[in-house]
Write a protein that binds this DNA or RNA. Structure first.
Lengths: 118, 118
DNA sequence: CGCATTGGTTAGTAATAGCTTACCGTTAGT
DNA sequence: ACTAACGGTAAGCTATTACTAACCAATGCG
């Protein structure tokens, strides 16, 4: 279930793929046109689209000899939800900790007072 | 300036690094303790922490012979903001497109009706 | 003082990822 | 039917990355 996060994350980790993602957020585009804009060849674009598709971020449909790719709003929304959950956990816990300056030290060794704090 | 996104993204793209991130979201932890929990050695943890630190996601402070790492709420919030912007752009444009079933076809060739839509 | 604990860094290795070239199937137009 | 355009896939190369083992500096304690 957490695989969506994994796939989505390293789908967006690549700059070229993010460029495709951005271009696709303006509307459906054919593979060839993406390749024309990007600094890589068409096969590279195909491979990137494959990754994005497996991550559930894009969908494609045939249009004559061409194939139009566009964002999959559901997939994007789902990934966004995963991210939001991650941020919330991270920042939420921090918030809770900031309120209690020093809590009960779960495991003794951990929370020693720091000598110089620099 | 978009480098924060890049750094943050491939900082979180790695599963081990995400595990560290999750563990750190529960509070400050020493390197050794992270290594004890994770399936990798301590040097690997150090290297991962370095990446997370360069991405601005964690901060560290000395505590005796140990070094405690914790999330940097500012960095996390900043990365989150970048993501939110990305999602908004992606889904916002899509929203706008969904409202106009077929717009004026910027470049003629593009928006043909799909034959089978499968 | 040694001595142990902690942790950052380096060197080296194996796996992975992104790219290109080449090839092939499919569709549209004449 | 022939031809051209589009695009997916395979093979191969290169660069990057995650890892370990080994070494070294710093701190705390007896």
């Amino acid at each position: 279930m957490d695989t969506y996060l994994q796939a989505g994350l390293d789908a967006l980790a690549d700059e070229t793929r993010r460029a495709i993602f951005r271009r696709l957020s303006a509307g459906p585009v054919a593979v060839n046109e993406l390749a024309r804009v990007l600094p890589v060849t068409r096969p590279a674009v195909s491979q990137h689209l494959k990754v994005l598709k497996k991550a559930g971020l894009v969908i494609d449909r045939k249009a004559g000899t061409r194939r139009l790719y566009q964002l999959d709003p559901e997939g994007v929304a789902r990934l966004r939800a995963h991210f939001d959950e991650m941020w919330t956990k991270a920042l939420g816990n921090f918030q809770r900790m900031a309120e209690k300056p020093l809590m009960g030290a779960k495991d003794g060794k951990q929370c020693r007072a720091r000598p110089k704090s620099n």
